[in-house]
Simulated scan of single mutants.
Amino acid sequence: MSWIDLVTNPKGLQEIFPEGPPSLSGVSLHELVVEREGPTVRFRLDLPAYPANPPAKWLRAGFNMVQVELLFGGVSELRLVGISTEVIADMEIRPANGVSLEVRSASMVVSAVAASVTVSVLGAYLDGGREADR
Rank of each mutant, 00 (worst) to 15 (best):
A124I: 09
R36E: 08
P55T: 10
L47Q: 11
N64I: 13
D127T: 06
W58G: 01
A132Q: 09
V7I: 11
F72P: 07
P39N: 13
L101R: 08
I4V: 09
W58F: 12
L122V: 07
A56R: 14
A114N: 04
E86R: 11
P10N: 02
A56P: 12
G74D: 07
S116M: 08
L78F: 14
K11W: 00
S120C: 02
L13G: 03
K57L: 09
S105N: 02
V110R: 04
L80A: 07
I16E: 00
D46P: 11
R79H: 10
P22I: 00
L13M: 04
S76K: 12
T85C: 08
S105Y: 03
G98L: 03
E37Q: 15
L32T: 03
V121S: 05
P10V: 09
V103S: 02
V113M: 03
D46Y: 09
P39E: 11
W3Q: 07
E37V: 14
L6A: 11
P51Q: 05
Y50L: 14
A96Y: 09
L78C: 00
Q67I: 12
S76E: 11
A49I: 09
I93L: 14
S23W: 00
P48D: 08
V121D: 09
A114P: 04
T118C: 08
K11E: 12
L59R: 15
S107E: 12
R134M: 15
G98K: 03
T85G: 14
L45Y: 05
S105A: 07
L6V: 07
V68P: 01
L6M: 08
A49Q: 07
R36L: 09
D46C: 15
P21H: 04
A52F: 10
V119A: 08
G26I: 10
R130Y: 00
V87I: 10
V117N: 12
R130K: 15
P54W: 11
T40K: 15
L59V: 15
P22G: 09
S107L: 14
V119P: 08
P39S: 14
E102P: 01
A114K: 10
K57P: 05
V119G: 05
N97Y: 01
A115T: 05
L29V: 02
S120T: 05
R60L: 15
D5K: 03
E19V: 03
L45V: 12
M1H: 01
E35M: 14
E15H: 00
N64H: 09
E77V: 10
V110Q: 02
E37T: 13
K57G: 11
G38W: 13
L29K: 01
A106I: 06
P95I: 00
Y125M: 06
V66H: 07
I88F: 04
L32D: 00
S105G: 06
L32Y: 00
G74S: 06
V66L: 11
V27K: 05
S25L: 07
M1P: 07
V110E: 01
L80I: 14
F72I: 10
V34T: 04
W58Y: 11
V33H: 05
G123E: 07
A56K: 12
V68A: 06
